[in-house]
Design a protein around this nucleic acid. Structure first.
Length: 351
RNA sequence: GCCCAGAUAGCUCAGUUGGUAGAGCAGAGGACUGAAAAUCCUCGUGUCGGUGGUUCAAUUCCGCCUCUGGGCA
C-alpha cells in the first residue's frame, strides 16, 4: 500500500516554515526539506533556512547535508527523500515534505524517468565539444552566454539527436546540455526515456498544501525579507564563503542562486552596492512568479485530482494554529483508499 | 518678475522634415522529466501637459495657460 505524505509548498517567503513547524507538532510529523539550496551547508541566511531554534523544535531531514561543491539534483533528492519517508513512516511518524522547489516535489510524487547517471566520459566529451566551439569563435563572442555559442551547441545536438533538437529551444542551454549528455552517455534519446515514463506513476498518497498569497502581498513580504537578510549579515555570509572557495566559486552551484549571485557580482565590482538589494528583490519577485506559474498549471497537467476544498485567510492577523486545525480536519476527512490518483491538492489563499 | 530648457507607456527617455508613435527598465503570461533559487519563450493604445489658432490633417508649427528643472535679477 502506498504511503501517506503531506507536502507544504508555495512561493518563497510565504510562511512554509512557520506552518510546517506547527503542523509537524500537531501531527507527530518530521520535516523533509525540498529546497534545492537549503540542502547545502553554510548557505544559511540567503536560503532562508529555519533557525537553529526552529530546527530543534521538530526533527528535520535533508537540510545542510552537503558541502557546497557536492553534486546534487532531482534524482538524488528523490532517492534520499524516499529513504527518509520510509524511515519516518516505520517510526510511525508523519513525513512532511516542505519546500519551494516544484520540480523536486513533482518528481517525488509522480516519479522520474529512469535514466542512468551520465558517465564521466560523456561529461568530458561535452566539455571538449564546448571548448572546440569556443576556440572556433571570434574572441568578441567566445563566451557561453552568446547566441552564436548556443546555436552551435544546438547544432551539435541536432547532429546526434534530431528529435530532441527540434523540441528544445536552441537558447535553452540547460536542456541542450542535458540532452547531449544523455545521448552520449546512454546512446538513447532523452525523449524515449521521457515517453516511457510520462508522469503516470504515483508513488505516494500525497496531500499537497500549497500556500498562495495574493501577488501584491507576497511581493511586499519578499521585499521585507530581503532587507531582513541584509540585516542578519547576508553580506558577511557571502564574503566568508567567497574567501573560503575563492577560485572554485564559479563551479559551486549554490553561488548561482538568487542573492548569492548578486552579492558575488558586487564583491567582484560588477554591481553597485545601491543596486544589490534592489536586484535581489527583483530576482526574487521573478522567481515567485515562476513558482506561481508552476503550481497554477501543475495539477491540471499532471492530472491530479481536483481540490475539493480551499481555505482563505487574511495575512494581517494570520494564525498558524487555526490553519493547522482546518488543514487537519480536511486531511482526516479524506479517504485515501477510495481515491484512484492518491493525490489531493489543498490551496490556501492568503490576502 | 525676466530668460532658457523640458512636459510622450508605471519609470527613464527616443521619435515623427505635419499623416495619432518605440526602446530600455519595471511589469504580465507561458514552458519546465537529474544544474530547477537553474534555463528559456511570448507580450508595448498611450487623452504624445491643457487650451485656442494655422492646415485637408497637429503629438509635431504658432499663441496663451499650467507644472517641473536651470539661470538672471
Amino acid at each position: 500500500m502506498k504511503k501517506n505524505i503531506i507536502i507544504i509548498t508555495g512561493p518563497t517567503g510565504c510562511g512554509k516554515t512557520a506552518l510546517s513547524l506547527v503542523l509537524a507538532k500537531k501531527m507527530q510529523g518530521e520535516i523533509i526539506n525540498a529546497d534545492s539550496v537549503q540542502v547545502y551547508k553554510y548557505f544559511d541566511i540567503g536560503s532562508a533556512k529555519p533557525t537553529t531554534e526552529q530546527l530543534a523544535q521538530v526533527p528535520h531531514h535533508l537540510i545542510s547535508i552537503l558541502e557546497p561543491g557536492e553534486e546534487f539534483n532531482v534524482g538524488t533528492f528523490c532517492k534520499l527523500a524516499d529513504d527518509k519517508i520510509l524511515e519516518i513512516t516505520n517510526r510511525k511518524k508523519m513525513p512532511i515534505v516542505v519546500g519551494g522547489t516544484g520540480l523536486y516535489i513533482q518528481s517525488l510524487v509522480n516519479g522520474l524517468a529512469e535514466i542512468d547517471d551520465v558517465s564521466s566520459e560523456a561529461q568530458d566529451k561535452l566539455k571538449v565539444i564546448e571548448d572546440n566551439i569556443i576556440a572556433s569563435l571570434d574572441i568578441a563572442v567566445a563566451n557561453k552566454n552568446t547566441i552564436i555559442f548556443r546555436s552551435k551547441l544546438h547544432n551539435y545536438l541536432n547532429s546526434i539527436d534530431n528529435a530532441v533538437a527540434n523540441s528544445v529551444n536552441p537558447e535553452d542551454i540547460s536542456r541542450v546540455r542535458r540532452a547531449i549528455l544523455v545521448k552520449l552517455s546512454t546512446g538513447t534519446s532523452i525523449l524515449s526515456y521521457q515517453k516511457l515514463h510520462s508522469h503516470r506513476d504515483k508513488n505516494y498518497n500525497a496531500f499537497i498544501i500549497i500556500l498562495l498569497p495574493q501577488r501584491e502581498l507576497i511581493y511586499k513580504l519578499v521585499d521585507e525579507r530581503v532587507r531582513e537578510m541584509m540585516d542578519k549579515g547576508f553580506l558577511a555570509e557571502v564574503e566568508a564563503l567567497r574567501e573560503k572557495y575563492l577560485n572554485e566559486a564559479f563551479k559551486i552551484k549554490p553561488f548561482t542562486s538568487i542573492g548569492y549571485k548578486q552579492i558575488m557580482q558586487f564583491k567582484d565590482g560588477n554591481l553597485d552596492y545601491s543596486d544589490v538589494v534592489r536586484d535581489i528583490q527583483k530576482e526574487t519577485r521573478r522567481y515567485v512568479k515562476r513558482q506561481f506559474t508552476w503550481w497554477k498549471n501543475q495539477p491540471v497537467k499532471l492530472d491530479w485530482s481536483e481540490c475539493t476544498s480551499k481555505l482563505n485567510y487574511t495575512f494581517a492577523n494570520i494564525d498558524f494554529e487555526k490553519i493547522v486545525e482546518d488543514v487537519e480536519k480536511i486531511y482526516l476527512e479524506y479517504e485515501w483508499q477510495r481515491d484512484e490518483q492518491g493525490i489531493k491538492f489543498l490551496p490556501i489563499i492568503m490576502t
